[in-house]
């Protein structure tokens, strides 16, 4: 795992929620533009470290397998 990828994982694991908006990750990389951050996140999805969660209208990122999965989405 690269240094950038580790920062993302540390950011996610340091919080109680499991899904994050793209904008949330901008604070992990201060001074770096959204396009650069997107490259890091896209790479992590390709490597199956992260996965997309989509409501249909909005998309979020989370660690693969974390949080509610599949049909359990939306349950307390």
């Amino acid at each position: 795992m690269t240094e950038d990828q580790q920062k993302v994982v540390d950011f996610i694991t340091g919080r109680s929620k499991t899904k994050f908006y793209f904008n949330d990750f901008l604070e992990v990389f201060p001074g770096r533009g959204p396009r650069e951050v997107k490259k890091v996140l896209t790479g992590m999805v390709q490597e199956e470290i992260l996965e997309f969660w989509s409501s249909g209208s909005t998309t979020m990122y989370g660690l693969k397998g974390a949080g509610k999965q599949g049909a359990a989405e939306g349950e307390v």
Partner: peptide, 15 residues
């Protein structure tokens, strides 16, 4: 909503 989709794509499928 959900994590369903095709590999590498963040859209196109709505759970």
């Amino acid at each position: 909503g959900g994590i369903v989709g095709v590999f590498g794509y963040g859209g196109g499928v709505i759970g």
